[in-house]
Amino acid sequence: MESNSSEMEGNGGKIAETAPTNDSSPSLNILCAICNEFFRANDIIFSTSRCGHVFHKDCLTRWLNRSRTCPQCRDPCDRRRVHRLYLNFAEAPEFDDTELPKVAMDWVPIDLDRDSLPDAHLPPEGAVQCGTNEDGLPTYVARGYYHDDLLPAPYVPEKKAAFGSHSCSARTLTDDVEILVLNDCDYKWVPGQHGTYPRDALNTGYSELGEVTYTGRGLYQGILRLGKVHPSHKVMYIPHHGQEVSVNTYEVLVVTPRDQADR
């Protein structure tokens, strides 16, 4: 074990990490709960997707090699459910009315808590609506976490939930639901069958084994439905009345930023 990264068991079984101290970048008034060191401007910082707590990348990686929970709140966490945070530091002007540029495509978390504002469940501008659910309610392209999977899932605003297909059942998703928002993109639906998908298909989710899954749409009982294209299973799965049904022919979502399309 290297001398500059000692690890030991602290109170309550918490793993203590020793972070490098030779960084001369400015210190931030935020602590990494694993090593108890303040973040610095040059640090690589990662956040958990479910609860949003932040840690040094190396600290969090070592922790998740031993545990599948968040080091701070002990919520379930997986190495595939973390992402890097990019923080920009600058002196703020006294008055700054400049609008930040919008990204071309984004997965935007949607607030489905009981105590949220009355309109918090409404799809934001740029959300992609396609088809309906089995009751004829409009659905939007979304995704949500279920155990170790990230499921492509139709979001139904009237139900305040997304619905994913997993292990022969339809799963109701109300935590960590993200809706696709396009600001400067074109999109199209490309035909596929028996698990095929175009090379430029939108990578929407993944299975617990790390296989990429895609957003698709297809007809089921005469209704255009959103679902999960699972290549190795050679079908598109659709959540339907609490069950997971499948179709062999479908269309796969392809999203292209307009500046890329012009090249």
Rank of each mutant, 00 (worst) to 15 (best):
E9W: 11
F163L: 15
E125K: 12
A16W: 10
H230S: 10
Y187Q: 02
P109L: 04
R80Q: 15
L150D: 02
L31V: 13
Q243M: 11
D78H: 15
K14T: 10
S47V: 08
Y250S: 02
D148H: 13
A127N: 01
G12I: 09
G131A: 05
L85D: 00
G12K: 10
G131N: 06
F38G: 08
W63S: 03
A170N: 00
P20H: 06
D96F: 09
R225G: 02
G13A: 09
K234M: 08
A261T: 02
C35Y: 06
P109I: 07
T215V: 13
H233D: 13
E208L: 08
E37C: 11
C168S: 15
E158R: 14
L253C: 06
Q243Y: 06
D184P: 01
A261M: 11
V54M: 15
S169R: 15
H83K: 12
K102V: 13
A19D: 07
D184E: 14
R68V: 00
S116N: 10
E99I: 11
P154G: 03
I238G: 09
L100P: 02
L224A: 07
G218E: 05
D259H: 12
V128R: 03
E9M: 10
R66D: 05
T249G: 01
Y145F: 14
S207I: 04
Y214A: 00
D259M: 10
V54I: 14
H194T: 05
L137M: 11
P118E: 06
H53K: 02
C70T: 05
W63Y: 08
F95G: 00
E7V: 13
S5W: 04
S3C: 01
L151V: 08
W63K: 04
S3K: 11
S24V: 14
L150N: 08
P76D: 00
T196V: 03
K188Q: 12
D259S: 11
R143I: 11
T61G: 03
A92D: 01
A161E: 01
N36F: 13
L209H: 10
N183E: 01
D113G: 12
L64N: 05
V54D: 06
E211N: 13
D259C: 07
V212W: 06
E251A: 07
V245M: 05
D23P: 04
V103D: 09
S25V: 12
R84W: 02
I15L: 15
L253M: 06
Y237H: 07
P118D: 05
C168L: 09
C185M: 13
D23M: 06
L28Q: 14
K159Q: 14
V247Q: 04
P93Q: 01
D149L: 02
Y250K: 04
P101N: 08
H233A: 15
E208D: 14
D149Q: 02
Y86R: 08
K57Y: 09
K14R: 14
